[in-house]
Design a protein around this nucleic acid. Structure first.
Lengths: 257, 257
DNA sequence: TTCGTTTTTATAACGCGTTCAAAATAATGT
DNA sequence: ACATTATTTTGAACGCGTTATAAAAACGAA
């Protein structure tokens, strides 16, 4: 690898690291390409040369984070594949919940700028990660033999991402997110359970059902649009409180079919 | 209601109708606030006065669409609550799939501009819609008596939205989306099935499993960022093809924890 | 070292979502 | 009828992501 390539890689890493720091320091507010370029000490055009777009920068960061998490998940392996599945899910939930600011921001911005990890999540490596314990469960007689491990794994991934998305949006807090994921997993696995596993899964199911919060109260996810005064013009101390608009319900224009 | 209120409502509806037309005509490209204001024959600031933000305009449109769909869903009621659940899900999937351009665009933009329908979906009316057939199923002895209908309904909503999101992103086509939803529903219900319903649900499960596509090929969802030449400057016929950037994988900056 | 080729930089521009002071307009009191 | 007051619309402006362009810098080869 020539010097040229090395410098390029260096810049790439500097940009990724800057993105990470920026998210940690400011959340999504302040995560602008101009700020990113400044922090990485490159010009505004460089991230576009090296990644293509803002979304691509963050997708790469997100992918790296995901791979790291998946590597930790791979390590979890015991004698009981079903317990493994639940432990893997729990590890994932706990990881996200352990750093809400970072992960919520990252996930939110990945969700928004389409073509995120979702393609990969279904067609790529994530499915295979979940597929392995499912297959092991089938072999061990703990899950129905006629179940297709790939489709089951897809279903688990979709559920996981769905609940995670609610957490990102602040509809669920970390605790509720974890319990919901485990509840959903248990429910899906219960559908595939055999006599050898049903009793245990039912116990799990009842436990998670008991732990689920009945009331949903939307929490502040820190992603709301804040009035970001340019930091230079500190005069006019934020007095203007915009009146909340809540007009009478307008009728739906016809033709929705 | 004074003249003022009437005019206001008029403008609101004009804006919503304009948003709908704009989506149908141009997809997400061209769905700008300036174009919206022009089509609705109001000034750029008016939608902000009346709704608050672009996301809020589309959220209102989306909510109206959702309510309309849910009203159709409510009508589906037969003697078999489990069949009802599947039929409701199928109706939803078919409705979305029947007009991909419109619904994909609407859903994509709702997903992106946070605080969409997702709050409502979990805490609001959607859950209750699914909850009713689940309750009926429990009463009829088709689902386990110790199941909590609210949590089951939440799980179904989350799954539905998760699969729908994959369709919106183009990871699944309409057919695969419908089958995936039905597969996931069947799997969840199978976990709660009783002797009275298990055989039938198993038949469904095997059928949907057979219909699922094994290969995932990402389709064009029409939401990619297109180079939108201002329509006035037709010269310089789109020659410049930007070189695709695909650099060697950069290492993850340390400290992700 | 010198030449030729890439790549980064600096800067300006575009359209975007959003905000704000000022102008225009409807409602109200006399 | 008019003048006052409370809203609402307007038009200009901001920072954003992104692109284009020309100049400068950095590398590889001779």
């Amino acid at each position: 690898m020539g010097l040229r390539e090395k410098r390029k890689l260096e810049r790439r890493e500097r940009i990724l690291a800057a993105a990470q720091e920026l998210i940690r320091e400011t959340g999504s507010v302040g995560l602008s390409m101009r700020a990113l370029a400044r922090k990485a000490e490159v010009s505004l055009a460089t991230p576009y040369n090296l990644f293509g777009s803002k979304g691509a920068v963050l997708a790469e960061l997100g992918l790296a984070v995901l791979k790291k998490l998946e590597r930790k998940m791979e390590e979890l392996r015991s004698h009981d594949p079903i317990e493994d599945l639940l432990h893997i899910a729990e590890l994932g939930a706990n990881t996200y919940a352990s750093d809400p600011r970072f992960y919520r921001t990252l996930m939110a911005v990945l969700t928004a700028s389409a073509r995120g990890l979702h393609d990969d999540a279904i067609s790529g490596g994530s499915v295979r990660l979940w597929q392995r314990p499912v297959e092991a469960g089938i072999r061990a007689g703990l899950l129905r033999a006629d179940a297709d491990s790939e489709f089951v794994a897809r279903d688990l991934v979709i559920t996981f991402l769905g609940v995670l998305d609610l957490w990102v949006r602040g509809v669920l807090d970390g605790e509720a997110m974890r319990t919901h994921i485990l509840y959903a997993f248990t429910l899906a696995l219960l559908g595939l359970s055999t006599d050898a596993s049903r009793a245990k899964l039912l116990r799990h199911y009842r436990r998670f059902q008991r732990q689920l919060p009945r009331e949903i109260r939307v929490v502040d996810n820190g992603l709301a649009r804040r009035r970001a005064r340019p930091a230079g013009e500190a005069a006019n101390g934020g007095a203007a409180v915009a009146a909340k608009v809540r007009a009478p319900q307008a009728a739906l224009p016809e033709g929705i079919q």
